[in-house]
Nucleic acid binder design. Structure first.
Length: 289
DNA sequence: ACCTCGACCTGCAAGC
DNA sequence: TGCTTGCAGGTCGAGG
């Protein structure tokens, strides 16, 4: 469940369970996800109290009482589920072991948090909080799109001089953090901007933001806010930690809508799909300019 | 310094 | 039915 709204939904699901709990046991079912686990990974977690669960870009950041931070990334196919130690003969379906359960955290509350990731593009890494500023995975990340630091001037500045397409720029986590393939397409459609347009056209010659930059910022904020409000999108049955589903896939206007009529009021265009930078892009050539 | 592409993995659906 | 192919919400490193 990977883009910002999905990661934020996961964070909100895990937060009440994790915060304040102590990790009593760490099970690694394999030695690596995308990278090998750090040699002291389990030891640094075991016995630690989780004091908070935050998010930066698509990373979940669990603050530990030790001063360490557990960084977690879901990659393309990562998901968490919350289970509980069975009481008596009662077994809950979410407690049943599944294939691709790679990490199991037992908490002092009796809750069990399981990380499942078939493709293993996700990863976990422990970093000292004092070393976060030097963490390569976070270095250079662009602003949070729902934060105060993200505005038309910032976006225009990040895109000034870029020969890459707007779509590529939105996928670039150094420009703005948290968008992925779905929300890049959806926000560009909302802003009526072509994914093929040069990113540099968000800035005037002097570097000041154009109206396009303002439209795009507004679209990004609106789409992400709406998506979070309905629990993100659920594709391929990837669920929330508590087993519930997101609903934003029903609000997609272009993603996976090839051949369907454009939803822009007054537009009679048809949604098209093409491959851009190796990834599917969905858009309406009629109203996105 | 940019930009694009291939590589990393598994699982599922469509097509033959 | 079974095999092959293509495709999937991400990111990094190599090479142009």
């Amino acid at each position: 469940m990977p883009e910002l709204p999905e990661v934020e939904t996961v964070r909100r699901g895990l937060q009440p369970v994790m915060e304040g709990a102590r990790i009593t046991r760490v099970e690694l079912r394999r030695a690596d996800l995308r990278f090998p686990f750090q040699p002291d990974f389990a030891a640094r977690l075991t016995g630690q109290r989780i004091v908070g669960l935050g998010r930066r870009a698509k990373f979940l950041m669990a603050d530990l009482a030790s001063g360490d931070v557990l960084m977690m990334h879901l990659g393309m196919s990562g998901s968490f589920r919350i289970g509980a130690v069975p009481v008596g003969a009662f077994h809950h379906p979410r407690n049943v072991e599944r294939v691709n359960d790679h990490v199991v955290l037992r908490l002092s509350s009796g809750k069990i948090i399981t990380y499942n990731d078939p493709r293993r593009f996700g990863f976990m890494k422990i970093v000292a909080r004092s070393a976060l500023d030097d963490e390569p995975l976070l270095k250079g990340l662009g602003p949070e799109p729902l934060g105060n630091a993200f505005d038309a001037a910032t976006l225009a500045k990040a895109c000034a001089g870029k020969t890459a397409s707007l779509k590529a720029a939105l996928l670039n986590q150094h420009v703005v953090a948290g968008l992925g393939n779905i929300y890049a397409a959806e926000t560009l459609h909302r802003a009526r901007l072509s994914p093929k347009r040069r990113a540099s056209t968000l800035a005037s010659h002097s570097g000041a933001p154009t109206d396009r930059a303002r439209q795009l910022v507004a679209a990004i904020r609106a789409v992400l806010t709406e998506a979070i409000a309905v629990g993100g999108a659920t594709l391929r049955n990837c669920r929330h930690p508590d087993g519930k589903l997101g609903y934003f896939q029903h609000s997609f206007e272009v993603y996976n809508h090839e051949g369907q009529p454009c939803t822009t009021p007054g537009c009679d265009g048809v949604v098209r799909r093409f491959v851009q930078n190796g990834r599917a892009t969905f858009w309406c050539p009629k109203c996105q300019k």
